[in-house]
Amino acid sequence: MKASPSDQALLLDLQAVDTKLRQLEYKAKSLTQHAAIATLTSQIDGLRATELERRGAREDVTIELSRLESDVTVVEARIKRDEERAQASSSAKDAQALEHELASLRKRQFDLEEIELTVMEKLEERDAALAETQASLTDLRAQIGELEVARDTELKVITDEQKHTAANRSTIAAKVPADLLALYEKQQARYGTGASLLRGGVSGANGVRLLENELVAIRAAAPDDVLICPSSDAILVRTGESGL
């Protein structure tokens, strides 16, 4: 392939722009907020599981308390009924039986209310544990929100620079002959670098000094010959700095 030295030199500008675009892409992916958000999100996932567990434990205690309150209500109703029956009874035997039953019911009421107090204390503990977890979740979500704002601010700066750099690339690429541009993009896609400046016998793409026999072949090539760097497989661009 043939291309004028000036057209080949344009590839160095194109390579510089492409390198910058890769750097900007890496910078966008490497923002510190990404890792911080991922860490906090993982913590939130763990806390959500804890919240679910604690919510279930609270629900169990609530059900237990509801059952106890129902039992207390039943016992209170029976006590009231027996007290009314005892007051209305004219039989000493029946009154004695009712008093015995009332004593048992009052004992049962006392025991249930003691258990009820214990369960209510347990419910307070469950409420406190659940509230603590929910507060932690709220705090973590707030931290993530702040990080997302900071991330998005930095990403906008990077995105704006990417747009500007991409527009610059289009301007440069439009000046490069189509066949030379196609070869450049092919080599870049395959090897990671499309063009390499030969400076002082060293390939700029990888910093490798070319062998003498390789330099002899390069010196023998016409200025408009498009050469492939033997060490990087990028298009080798020769200038006055090449040391040929």
Rank of each mutant, 00 (worst) to 15 (best):
A3H: 06
S6Y: 08
D7V: 12
Q8F: 03
A9D: 02
L11W: 06
D13I: 00
Q15W: 02
V17D: 00
V17M: 11
V17G: 09
T19V: 04
R22P: 02
Q23V: 03
Y26F: 03
A28D: 00
K29Q: 15
Q33D: 08
Q33V: 11
Q33R: 09
A35F: 11
I37K: 05
T39Y: 11
L40C: 00
T41M: 10
Q43R: 15
D45C: 04
D45V: 11
G46Q: 15
L47M: 13
A49W: 15
R54N: 15
R58I: 00
E59Y: 05
D60A: 15
T62G: 08
I63P: 00
E64Q: 14
L65N: 01
L65T: 10
E69A: 03
D71V: 02
T73P: 00
A77S: 12
I79T: 02
D82P: 03
A86Q: 12
S89C: 15
S90Y: 05
S90G: 08
D94R: 14
D94V: 14
A95G: 02
Q96I: 08
L98Y: 04
L98E: 07
E99F: 12
L105I: 01
R106I: 00
K107N: 15
F110T: 10
E113Y: 04
E113H: 10
E114N: 07
I115F: 02
E116S: 11
M120V: 05
L123N: 05
L123K: 13
E124L: 09
E125Y: 12
E125V: 11
A128V: 09
A129P: 00
L130I: 13
L130T: 10
Q134H: 08
A135Y: 07
S136Q: 14
S136L: 14
S136G: 11
T138I: 15
T138D: 14
D139P: 05
D139M: 06
L140T: 03
L140N: 12
R141V: 13
R141T: 11
A142T: 15
A142R: 14
I144L: 12
L147C: 07
V149P: 02
A150H: 14
T153Q: 13
T159D: 09
D160W: 06
T165E: 10
N168P: 01
S170R: 10
A173H: 07
P177D: 05
A178R: 09
L183F: 00
L183Q: 05
Y184P: 00
Y184L: 01
E185T: 07
Q187V: 01
Q188E: 09
Q188S: 13
Q188G: 03
A189M: 01
R190D: 04
G192Y: 00
G194Q: 12
G194H: 05
A195M: 05
R199W: 04
R199E: 08
G200S: 06
G200P: 01
G201D: 07
G204C: 06
N206W: 05
G207I: 08
R209I: 01
L210W: 04
E212L: 05
N213C: 00
E214N: 14
L215N: 07
V216F: 01
R219Q: 07
A220R: 08
P223I: 07
P223L: 09
V226Y: 05
I228R: 04
C229N: 02
S231K: 10
D233W: 03
D233H: 10
L236K: 12
L236E: 14
V237H: 12
R238D: 04
R238S: 05
R238C: 03
T239Y: 05
G243W: 13
G243A: 12
